[in-house]
Structure formats: structure tokens, C-alpha cells
Design a protein around this nucleic acid. Structure first.
Lengths: 208, 208
DNA sequence: ATATTGACTAACAATTTTGTTAGTGCGAAA
DNA sequence: TTTCGCACTAACAAAATTGTTAGTCAATAT
């Protein structure tokens, strides 16, 4: 006989519902009652499993920050590739993630502004790895520039360009779609198109 | 004798405080009591002048949408310029606005996601003018392409590129500064630098 | 058989937050 | 001088929201 799990993963269902609620509405907009309702459990279950709204929120936000960090580490951080391939790889992987999780960047950005106290929770994790990665990227650019393959550009500006081009349209998709008459949703593969264009845009910026 | 105004513009002070509160915390994070406190008036005054939180919020959000619309109309909409000058003008004016009002885009984006019902309030105003402006921009691009000056690119992708490059860094400045070690705040004139680079990036994309 | 443990419920408590209302004081109009 | 309207206050009311607690029930261990 199969060992029946007495709890049909109530905890996981609450967690899932909470993630959706927090990501779309932010901490202040999220309601613990809505979360419980969406998970199909009593409101008290929320507190039984996660004590407070704050605790669950912190768990979720730090999970999301870790995701972002991991993404950075195994794209920008992985430096065994020639620069051009590395950039293509970063752009494609980053865009895949953003397209699949469009609310993560908006959520993080929104919460840092609303509660600067919490900013540290997020930024501390990143600050440890960022400087070395940036320095390494700059070194690769300078090296390519010495060979005359690329122009000598500021690695930090380059990072801002790439993230801007990748993230913004997904972050603001409802507004973009309103202005551009559902361009993102209608166009067969906006994602594929963006991968191609963003890589091209960045390469044109880098080539002498 | 000077006619003393018995109310030292209480109404304006509340409005000002509310704008700050709504822009940084969003609708759900804003507290009418904090607004009153920040304005230095009784909590009841809030309701005396503006009835409900919802009403004041709608007033503010529609004011912000109008600002964005006006900005679009007199940059992109103004077509008496050669395309290259027009693009430089759009980028510079747009960047000036975003740098001076970094929370407006984040606010609008955040609220559309959190309350899709409200999306219409924002998008309706824009939808009226957008299609014609996009068509006109595409026409100008095609014209330049026919002369061999530019490449034939999709006007909508171009618009996404420009807004992304202009808005994102300001929208996410706390995170960018954390990752890039206060790059935006420290660098003498990040704004001027961005104006130059974004224009260049876009032109390199457009040139054959 | 009894005790124990963990998931769960229902009801309640506390606090926060929005909104209301009755009434005060003052200047201007009648 | 009386009346009227307006800005304003203090106290209260109502609802929403988070959090707690005592106790039920069923499976497992002793």
C-alpha cells in the first residue's frame, strides 16, 4: 500500500501562492488572507507554517536574489569563452530568464525603493561578487581593444546597456503593449527577435 | 494691509506629500496618515480636501500619465526635424525628464501590474496618439533607408531600444549603484555621458 | 490501550488604516 | 449684529488585516 502523505503539500501550495502574490503586488499590496485563499487553505495555516508575513516575504525575496546572483555567476562570471561568444551567451541566457520571470526585476526594483532598509538584504549578496566580475570584463575588453578588435568602452556602461535592453521591455510589457498595439504579444517570437537585435546592437557598439 | 490667506495652502501641502508617498510606496504602500503627517496637518484634513485615498491617487496618477504623454508629443511627435536630429532631441529630452523624475516610470509600471483594472486609465490616454506617431516614425526611417542613409529597422524595436536605454538605469538606480559600486552617483556626470552614449548606440544601430 | 505528535479549524484579539461626524472659531456678507 | 460659509479639530466608527489560542482529529509510537 502506498504511504499516503497526510498533508497534500499544504506548505508548498502556500509558498507558491505567496510567491505569486508578493511578486505581482509587492509586500505592502500582498494580503495574507488572499494568499491563503489562493492556496485553498485556512488563513490560520499561513501563520502555522510561516509565522509572519514578514518572515515569508524575506524568504521569498532572498530566494529571488539568489536566482539573480546565480544567473550572473554562470554567465558573466564564466570567463572561458572569447568575449564575443561570452556576450552572446550572457544576452541569450539573461533574456531567457527575464522572459520567463518578468516580474522578478520589477519586484526587486520596487521593493528597494519602497523599503530602503531592505536594500541591504538584496545588495549585500551581490556586492561580494560584482567587483571582481566587472574588473574581469573590463580586462577582456581592454585586451580585445589592444588587438584592435573592439573599441575601448567602459565595462560598467556596457553592463547597463545590456541589462537595460534585456530587462526593460519585459518589465514594462503592459505599457509597451499598450503603446505599441500588442507588439510583444502578437509578434511571432519577440524573444528570438530581441536576442538577435540586442546582440547586434551591443556588437555594433563595441566594434571600432 | 495684506489680505492674509487664512489657509497657508494646506491643500497644496497635502497634495505634495501625497505625490511623494504614492510615487515611492505605490498605492497599497501609501498611508493617508503618513501623508497628513508629512504635510503637517490633521489626518482629517486629508479627507476634507480629497475625500478618499482612491480619489487622490487617481488624480495623481493621471497627472503623471499626462506628463509622459506631453513629453512624447513634443519630442517624437514633433516631426519638422531631420531624423537624426529628431532622435538626438528625443533622447536628450527624455533622459532629462527621467533623470529628474526617476520614480515616475517605476511607479507607473508597478501600478499597472498590481492593479490591471487601472491599466486603462493610463493606457487609454496614450493609445489615441501612439499609432500615428509610430507610423510617422516608420515612414521617416523608410525614407532615410531608401536614400541609403539608414538601415531599414522596425520603428517599434527602435522605440523599445531608446526607452530601455534611457529609463532602466534610473528606474533601478539603487540596484545598479549597489552592483556597480555607486557608479551613477559618483561619476561626475552620468547624465551627460548617457546622453552621448545612448545617441551613439542608436545611431550605430541605424547606420548601414 | 494509551500517549504523543503534527496538521488543522474556528473563534477571537489587537492593531492599523480608512473614513465620518458633530462641533468650534473666524472672517466676510447681509 | 447676525448669519453664513469655510477651514479646521477631536473624537469616534467601521472595516480590514495580521496574528493568537484552545482544542479537534487521526496516525503513529509505546
Amino acid at each position: 500500500m502506498v504511504k499516503e502523505k497526510q498533508t497534500p503539500d499544504t506548505e508548498a501550495r502556500i509558498l507558491q501562492a505567496a510567491e505569486t502574490e508578493f511578486l505581482t503586488k509587492g509586500f505592502s499590496g500582498a494580503r495574507t488572507t488572499s494568499i491563503a485563499e489562493a492556496a485553498g487553505v485556512t488563513h490560520a495555516m499561513f501563520h502555522y507554517y510561516f509565522r509572519t508575513k514578514e518572515k515569508l516575504f524575506e524568504r521569498i525575496i532572498s530566494e529571488k536574489v539568489s536566482q539573480m546572483k546565480a544567473l550572473l555567476l554562470d554567465t558573466v562570471g564564466n570567463s572561458d569563452m572569447p568575449l564575443e561568444e561570452k556576450i552572446r551567451n550572457v544576452i541569450e541566457r539573461h533574456l531567457d530568464f527575464v522572459a520567463a520571470n518578468p516580474d522578478v526585476p520589477r519586484f526587486l526594483v520596487g521593493e528597494v525603493f519602497a523599503y530602503p532598509e531592505r536594500a541591504k538584504i538584496m545588495t549585500d549578496k551581490i556586492k561580494i561578487y560584482a567587483p571582481a566580475m566587472i574588473a574581469e570584463l573590463q580586462r577582456q575588453i581592454d585586451e580585445a581593444a589592444a588587438e584592435g578588435i573592439f573599441r575601448k568602452v567602459d565595462a560598467r556602461m556596457l553592463i547597463i546597456d545590456i541589462t537595460s535592453l534585456n530587462i526593460f521591455s519585459y518589465m514594462a510589457s503592459p505599457l509597451i503593449n499598450a503603446v505599441l498595439d500588442n507588439f510583444m504579444d502578437d509578434s511571432g517570437s519577440f524573444l528570438a527577435q530581441r536576442k538577435k537585435e540586442n546582440f547586434e546592437t551591443i556588437m555594433r557598439k563595441l566594434k571600432p
